[in-house]
Design a binder for these strands. Structure first.
Length: 306
RNA sequence: GGGGGGGCGCCGGAGUAGGAGAGCCGGGCCGGUCUGUAAAAUCGGUGCCUAAGUUGCUGAGUGGGUUCGAUUCCCACCCCCCCCA
């Protein structure tokens, strides 16, 4: 049985399509399960802000790896990969089809392939590097890296300079796999579907989605989460920056506009990632219903013999 | 009606004491990078014609003028903002 993976920009309708696919599969006796593949939806308490599947949606399709990490915890692609591999393998063992759903490109690649991600470094080293990065700036640390390793990393790229520096200080060899994260080699037979949509229409859907988020209490959720002291990886969620400025009361129109813009920019980066993925089957869903798209996806599964 | 400020690029802003802007800053938009922080971080492009410009083309509200040279100075007109009536 093939793993089904649904990728695409935010607001393109991945969850709805996944549910429609699941319903079709159930009609033929399958018992599919969605496996979340979104770096923010893993957090408990950020469901509205991250646009996670609602309770009603989860009733229609069981979701795994959703809302299972405390916001105070730091999460990572590596931890996600372990959890996802375990989940996918055990579902397949029981004859249940995993449907990977989510827009975090690195997490999707990590779930589908064995990426051989480098291990984390001891916290002391990370803290030391963080401190130096703050004091001396990324350019200084970049200059001290092995030129071979630093190839392709911009001196201003704080995250990557920090990561390469901490690996070097911990004595860990950086990964050197030529294929890298773009490998088309997967752990399990997979149908990888990328949903696309006319840009203007996608922008409208993003606007609507953000407005619905606000109505559903995204600002309150963000404030509550912030008070509880979220980890750095959790605070990366779009919305914290935009929505917490208005300490009480409804978010301003400016705040909402800037959140919409942030989501559009995010969608753009997701599309960049999607174009680069190998073996992805793109489906333009502009003007087409969830059911139509679901039928097409199931047909493609059939072409592979399941 | 009088006085003042201002009109360029998708939008906003700054600047040019006549001497090369399709130049600068911010936003938007578009594209790229990505190996345990990835909704992060980061790079580039954005008048027109180009596969490519080191001598390409058009442009600074409109029309004239001065000048070797005008986005800048002068005249007239149009439009926007502020103040006074």
């Amino acid at each position: 049985m093939r793993v089904l993976a649904l990728f695409g920009p935010t607001a393109v309708g991945k969850t709805e399509v996944a549910i429609a696919v699941a319903e079709l599969l159930r009609e033929r006796g399958e018992d599919p399960v969605a496996v979340n593949c979104d770096s923010i939806q893993v957090y408990r308490g950020l469901e509205v802000l991250s646009g996670a599947a609602t309770a009603a949606e989860r009733q229609r399709l069981e979701h795994r790896l959703l809302s299972f990490v405390e916001p105070a915890e730091e999460f990572s692609a590596g931890r996600y990969a372990e959890a996802a591999h375990r989940e996918i393998d055990s579902l397949l063992d029981r004859g249940r089809r995993p449907i990977l759903v989510g827009g975090t490109g690195l997490y999707l690649r990590a779930a589908l392939s064995d990426l051989d991600l480098r291990p984390p470094v001891p916290p002391e080293i990370r803290e030391e590097v963080e401190r130096e990065l703050g004091e001396r700036g990324p350019q200084a640390l970049h200059a001290e890296l092995d030129p071979e390793v630093a190839v392709g990393v911009d001196p201003n790229d704080r995250k990557r300079v920090a990561r390469l520096t901490e690996l070097a200080r911990a004595g860990i060899e950086p990964a050197a796999d030529a294929e890298g994260i773009w490998t088309a080699t997967v752990r399990r037979p997979t149908l990888l579907v990328g949903l696309t949509m006319d840009r203007g229409e996608l922008a409208q859907r993003i606007d609507r989605r953000v407005e619905e988020m606000i109505v559903a209490g995204a600002a309150e959720e963000a404030r509550a989460a912030l008070e509880a002291g979220p980890s750095r990886t959790a605070t990366a969620a779009l919305g914290f920056e935009q929505l917490v400025a208005d300490v009480d009361g409804a978010p301003s129109a400016e705040a909402i506009d800037s959140l919409k813009a942030a989501h559009r920019a995010y969608a753009r980066r997701q599309l960049t990632w999607m174009r680069r993925m190998e073996g992805v089957e793109l489906i333009d869903r502009t003007g087409r219903s969830d059911d139509e798209i679901a039928a097409e996806i199931v047909a493609r599964l059939d072409r592979f013999g399941g």
